[in-house]
Structures are given as structure tokens and as C-alpha cells.
């Protein structure tokens, strides 16, 4: 069946709500879901307002209440239509949910999934377009998932909700209109078994990317194939806990690493990937120094020409690749 990433996320909700009575959805704007593209359309009409719960403007209480409900057998999905709004709930996510298992001796587990949605560009400016996955990937006890493909958007959301740990599921609205043909949902994936995925095989350079930056890399590689470049693209998928085997093997093979991320540079995932791979390989296996491409280290601007400068362009990726290979 033909899906966009938006309808794939909607299909994941339907699968979960159909098969798991303990699943409910909680957050702002759920009875008028224009905030979240096509990912929630009509869910309240199909499943009722007791399971699709639109909430007061209370990010902390809603996130905390979802944690509380999850301790008593429920599997809530919390929706934060912008990741920027979710920041208000960081205590509940980082200091409560992520610590809960450890600090109570592994006897209690918050089975929550938090959808943090990134909506970049569109002249929305500094407070409606942050990509803060690197912050959250720093936290032991919090699983951080970022789908790129249409299939992953559906299947990793299902796996996240069925995972007994707290999961931050980060979507990028710039991926919502991507299309793919999907089979019906099969046996759900086990989140703990998931790791990065080689989207395109190649021999001269490894690109590690995630979410929208991975789509950008894919487009670039498809263009460069005509010029006989052979580039391997790895979709990170799971930012925490991070598994390195595939990444390390790829860089051992290609000898070149370009790390691309749609977040900021300092203390970000792009740098973490470079550090994590290079400390696992012999320096002599690198043919050139690793490079990272990220957003500019500045708050997002509103003015269009500045936005073009701020966000990572495909042109910049192409130039970087050519520099590394020539």
C-alpha cells in the first residue's frame, strides 16, 4: 500500500490502538491535529476521546502523567507537536523516566513513548525549529529513535511503544511527504535488537546520517552515482543506546567518514559518531580526516536568505564529498 511517512505514522497508531488496549495517546492538539501533519487524522473519531486525549497546555503534567500511567500497565504515547515545547517537560523525561528503572533497582519501568516533532524552516525561527536529539541521546536510560524511511517511521514507532523502556521518538516534518510502498505490518520489531542500517552500499566513502539529513545524503549520492562515485550511506536510526559495529566495519572498508547531522555542531551526534568510530579503528585505516556537517551553531533565523545559510544544503554536502575524495 502506498504511504507517505505521515500516513505510515498514522498506520502505526492504528495498529497499536487496534491490538493493544493499553495504548493511549496524550498531548496537545489531538482533537484538532493540524499541528502534526497527517499523522493523527481522525484517530479521536475512530478510537474515542478516552484513548486519544487532548490536553491542557501542560507539557510537564501530561508527560509526567503518561509516565505514571505507564507504571500501572498502560503504554501511553505522548505527543509534543514541537520539540521546543517538549523542553518544558525535560525533568520528567530525563530526571524521572530515564532514571526510574535504575534508581528503583530495576523493579519498575516507565513504558512511555514520547513523540518529539521537529518542524524546521518555514521562517519559524529560533523557538519552533530546534533539533535536540543530541541532548537526549546523552542520557542513559532514555532510548532515542529517529526514523528516516517511511517503513521505519511506522515500524520503529510500533517497536518503541512496545518497548518497556522510555523512548523518545523524534520525527522531522520535512520527511512527512516522503512516499513508499509498504506491506501490511508484520511481526513487530524488538527495539533493543535494532541498530543502524546500510541504505546504500559503496566503497569509497562512508556517510553516517540520521532522519532528514539522511534523506539529503541519499539524494546527493544518487546524483553522484552518475559521476561514478561509490558512497556508502548508513542510516543511524537509533541514537541511544548506540551500536557501532556496522559503522566501524563500513569505515574500515571505505577509509573515509563523513558524519552528517541536522543538529548543531558542539557536543552533537555528528561529533560523537566520529569519536566513537575513530577510537575503534586503527588510525592508519583512514585515508583522510573525518568530516562533520551540521547546522550552523546559531539559533534558527526567520529571514529566508539566512535560513538558506543556516540549514545544511545538498550543494554543501556534494562539495564536501568531492573535497574528501579528490
Amino acid at each position: 500500500m502506498k504511504h507517505t511517512q505521515g500516513t505510515a505514522i498514522l498506520a502505526a497508531h492504528k495498529y497499536l490502538l487496534d491490538n493493544y488496549p493499553e495504548v493511549f495517546v496524550f498531548g496537545q492538539g489531538l482533537w484538532s491535529p493540524w499541528y502534526v501533519g497527517s499523522t493523527m487524522t481522525d484517530l479521536d473519531k475512530i478510537y474515542g476521546k478516552d484513548r486519544i486525549i487532548d490536553s491542557p497546555v501542560s507539557e510537564v503534567a501530561v508527560t509526567g502523567a503518561a509516565i505514571g500511567a505507564s507504571l500501572y500497565g498502560y503504554k501511553p504515547i505522548v505527543v509534543h507537536p514541537r520539540m521546543d515545547f517538549m523542553i518544558l517537560a525535560v525533568d520528567q523525561i530525563v530526571t524521572q523516566a530515564a532514571k526510574w528503572s535504575s534508581m528503583f533497582g530495576g523493579q519498575s519501568h516507565p513504558n512511555i513513548t514520547i513523540r518529539g516533532i521537529v518542524n524546521r524552516g518555514g521562517e519559524q525561527g529560533a523557538q519552533h525549529s530546534q533539533s535536540l536529539h543530541s541532548w537526549f541521546a546523552h542520557i542513559p536510560g532514555l532510548r532515542v529513535v529517529m526514523p528516516t524511511t517511511v517503513k521505519d517511521a511506522r515500524d520503529l514507532l510500533i517497536a518503541s511503544v512496545l518497548c518497556p523502556d522510555p523512548v523518545l521518538f523524534i520525527e522531522d516534518r520535512w520527511l512527512y511527504d516522503e512516499e513508499d510502498e509498504l506491506d501490511p505490518v508484520g511481526e513487530p520489531l524488538v527495539l533493543n535488537d535494532q541498530e543502524s542500517n546500510i541504505l546504500i552500499e559503496g566503497s569509497d566513502l562512508t556517510i553516517v546520517a540520521n532522519s532528514f539529513s539522511c534523506l539529503q545524503a541519499k539524494r546527493v549520492i544518487e546524483q553522484l552515482e552518475r559521476e561514478n562515485y561509490s558512497i556508502e550511506l548508513i542510516d543511524l536510526r537509533i541514537l541511544n543506546p548506540l551500536k557501532y559495529d556496522k559503522l566501524v566495519n563500513s569505515v574500515k572498508k571505505t577509509g573515509r567518514l563523513l558524519s552528517i547531522d541536522g543538529g548543531w555542531t558542539t557536543c552533537g551526534v555528528a561529533g560523537e559518531i566520529i569519536a566513537g568510530i575513530t577510537e575503534r579503528i586503527d588510525p592508519s585505516s583512514l585515508k583522510t580526516r573525518p568530516v562533520r556537517l551540521t547546522l550552523t551553531d546559531a539559533p534558527a533565523p526567520t529571514s529566508k536568505p539566512l535560513e538558506n545559510e543556516y540549514y545544511l544544503s545538498e550543494e554543501k554536502i556534494i562539495n564536501t564529498i568531492k573535497d574528501m575524495l579528490n
Binding site: 493511549f24 478516552d50 510537564v60 503534567a61 501530561v62 508527560t63 509526567g64 502523567a65 503518561a66 509516565i67 505514571g68 500511567a69 505507564s70 507504571l71 500501572y72 500497565g73 498502560y74 501511553p76 525533568d91 520528567q92 530526571t95 524521572q96 526510574w100 534508581m103 528503583f104 519498575s108
Partner: peptide
């Protein structure tokens, strides 16, 4: 006893969610 945490007020939303679960039950 579902848990005590020392971040002031932090268990209040969690208890509220435990009540939401109880209401659903």
C-alpha cells in the same frame, strides 16, 4: 508505594498519571 523522588513536586504529575490509569481500570 509507587515511588518517592526528591525533585520537589516531580512525583505529583506521576501520581496524577497513576490516577489516570486507575480511572481507566
Amino acid at each position: 508505594f509507587g515511588g518517592s523522588v526528591p525533585i520537589v513536586g516531580a512525583s505529583v504529575p506521576i501520581a496524577t498519571g497513576a490516577a489516570l490509569a486507575a480511572k481507566k481500570d
